[in-house]
Design a protein around this nucleic acid. Sequence first.
DNA 1: ATTAAGTTAGTTACTATTAACTAACGGGAA
DNA 2: TTCCCGTTAGTTAATAGTAACTAACTTAAT
Lengths: 192, 192
Amino acid sequence: MLSGRQKEIVEISVGLVADKGIQNLTIKNIAAELKISEPAIYRHFNSKFDILDAVLDSFEGVAVDVLTKVTSSDIPPLDRIEMFMSDRLTRMAANPKLAKVMFAEELFQDDDRLAKKVMSIMHSHKDYIQQTLEDGQKDGSIRSDIDQITLFRLIFGPLRLLIKQWALSGFRFDLKTEGKKLWDAEKKLLTP
Amino acid sequence: MLSGRQKEIVEISVGLVADKGIQNLTIKNIAAELKISEPAIYRHFNSKFDILDAVLDSFEGVAVDVLTKVTSSDIPPLDRIEMFMSDRLTRMAANPKLAKVMFAEELFQDDDRLAKKVMSIMHSHKDYIQQTLEDGQKDGSIRSDIDQITLFRLIFGPLRLLIKQWALSGFRFDLKTEGKKLWDAEKKLLTP
DNA sequence: ATTAAGTTAGTTACTATTAACTAACGGGAA
DNA sequence: TTCCCGTTAGTTAATAGTAACTAACTTAAT
């Protein structure tokens, strides 16, 4: 588990990247935000890699929360997806810095190990959602004339773009309103 | 206009970013690829900023080509969008490095001027597509019960996600096949 | 003879990281 | 209570390496 200070460092790191990109994430800048010296950072993480690793863990944690909650219950597939989307939007709206960074997978390409981790997080989400889509197709609540991978792209592609537009616009429109409009439209496509 | 050497530098820059992220884009690495010394780069660009600026210009050029070609003709709106998507897929399939970088807007966040340029490129594309969607809604070929901005997200969100998945997967599936499947599905949603 | 495009050698500033040291605290043993 | 010991979280000073960029010089082509 992360200590309080470690959590601070992770949060600050996300903020630094959100503000000015990955090149802004330096030990110096983290230390400056915390108003401590650079070497003091190493009392809490062994290396910069470990900090980025913890950042990715925190991203994973954000999603795993909902996924497990929703999977264990016997909610209809379509409602599960809605809950997942809604949870995402709520979290992003509450933490705009996350919106700027979370779907920017390229930012972690610098290090092979981090890039792999990003991939595996993406895959596990995709696999879960595809399972839900399969359930829906079996019980007839989701149309079967489009394959699951395409359905996945049709649902989450627009969500990602919406969140990206929101972040790039400087959070100038209401994310949840636009998100609801999007989901209403998507439901029309998903149902047979 | 860019000289031959300048075009080389732009292309190499895209490749460096595609491979290992923005942190891999250094004057030293560009020079190494060209097998010339670092200061020689400054014979062709005044600064690193100018190189990144030229990279963004090249991205804009990629899209403007199709957009103007398609706008000037009197092709039906739905076909215009199909042409635009198809052109994008063809270009990315032919130049995978582009696929890794072109939709990674966060990579240019480091510099305010570049970030603004990214925004304005995104906006001009969106505006053009929305105009086409409006035309389609007026002549009845595109459904009117979903607003234009949501339609835009429904069409291009999945396209962007598809291209991103393709790039992150190491180009392991056939982009154009998946792209065609996607467009077929999208057509079902777009038509009334 | 000018110019374009390269070179070598250097600058300054910043990078992650380490070494050595210190102040503050908390728990047992005297 | 006081002394000892270890831990935690910080400090300053220094490391080796890399960043973008500049000055001065060479070479080859127009």
